[in-house]
Amino acid sequence: MLELAQSAFPQPMAGVTLAHYLVLSGAMFTLGLVGFITRRNLIIMFLCTELMFQAAGLALIAFSRYHLNLDGQTFVIFVLTVAAAEAAMALALVVLLFRRRESLSSEEWADLKG
């Protein structure tokens, strides 16, 4: 297992603990969650999932720094990949849905709940 080694790097970390980053990440995730629930525009809903991905990535990087272990950063590459794939698929679906009903409102599709 390789470990972080940057003794030349200045130490602006002092005073900021892991909990600070986790609280920030949690707040970002909550904003994304609230946005996903409340907004009715399909595109904005998917943009809010991207905000949740961001929060998860921040937590992963903070844990990676805390444990001085690079696996977290490697996993963030996966988060980016999944985010890109999700954006491509979701936006293709949004374009398809928009062509059907000429509207981006998620409530246009409320009849899907059966």
Partner: peptide, 29 residues
Amino acid sequence: VGFVILAALTAVMFRGSDALPPVQASAGS
């Protein structure tokens, strides 16, 4: 709902978290 979740999360996060360790050269590097 969102901010109740956030309050619960922060409550857990503040149990026993240390300062981040200094970045240093190690055997692996």
